[in-house]
């Protein structure tokens, strides 16, 4: 059984990493990115809940690294200033652009990895329950629930629509141009079916008294469970880093 830590601790860790993404220089941010990846493999409470989550983490890691590299390249090519480090396809790479690119890319990576680490290791029901016990309105919880459900089922739905379009002869696996044209035939059913299902799912939850939950469940769910000590510690640390950054006492 996967060891669990309080969901509030995980949320506080995400907040801390986000604060760090804006407080520290790119080198620390890059180091923290590596720490996040190490945490995913070493600390049991932050391990993925399923094979699917593990695959999603690896895939997103790759995608976000590719995006970060692109950001770095574009910035170093387009922002001119400082020493030139050479040329790529006739375009000069400048020091200022490279530094700005490194800052932006490492920040982007750290922000993404922090959120990824949270979602692959935290069951949805724990998050919802936590938010409810902290007084989140049932309407907002419902929106969150529907969004997360939509994201969770998105790959399966895309695959289903892809097969359906393929079955009716849409050129979904032909050349790039044909695929781009066929994209519309994938997108419109995807958007429409998602809207319809979200409405149905929301209605069904309403029909089970979900929106009256706050008034009804006060007696049934222990609200305002005491804050975890570790959570408070991480939150204080985040606040300290934030204050130090505001007063420019940290190397930016």
């Amino acid at each position: 059984m996967t060891p669990r830590i309080d969901i509030s601790v995980k949320l506080a860790v995400v907040l801390l990493l986000w604060v760090c993404a804006f407080a520290f220089s790119w080198m620390y941010q890059a180091l923290l990115c590596l720490v996040v990846i190490a945490v995913r493999f070493t600390i049991p409470a932050f391990r993925p809940q399923s094979q699917r989550s593990a695959r999603a983490f690896s895939r997103f890691l790759l995608y976000s690294a590719a995006v970060a590299f692109l950001v770095l390249l574009l910035n170093s090519l387009l922002i001119r200033g400082g020493t030139s480090y050479g040329t790529i396809l006739g375009f000069a790479l400048y020091e200022e652009g490279l530094l700005f690119g490194l800052r932006t890319a490492s920040r982007l990576l750290l922000l993404t990895y922090a959120v990824l680490l949270f979602f692959i290791s935290s069951p949805l029901k724990d998050l919802i329950r936590f938010l409810q016990t902290r007084g989140l309105s049932p309407s907002f919880t419902l929106i969150l629930l529907l969004t997360l459900h939509f994201l969770d089922h998105l790959p399966a739905r895309i695959h289903q629509i892809f097969l359906a379009q393929q079955a009716r002869g849409a050129p979904v696996d032909a050349g790039v141009l044909a695929r781009s044209r066929a994209l519309l035939s994938l997108l419109s059913p995807l958007v429409l079916s998602s809207i319809v299902e979200s409405i149905d799912r929301g209605t069904a939850l309403e029909l089970r008294g979900f929106l009256n939950r706050r008034t009804n469940c006060e007696a049934s769910i222990p609200s305002g469970e005491g804050w975890n000590f570790l959570t408070i510690l991480i939150l204080i640390l985040s606040m300290v880093i934030l204050i130090l950054t505001i007063f420019r006492w940290l190397p930016g």
Binding site: G209, F210, N212, R213, T215, N216, C217, A219, S220, I221
Partner: peptide, 10 residues
């Protein structure tokens, strides 16, 4: 049980 929680009948 989720329904009972919603209607405050736990």
């Amino acid at each position: 049980l989720f329904t009972l929680e919603n209607v405050g009948a736990v």
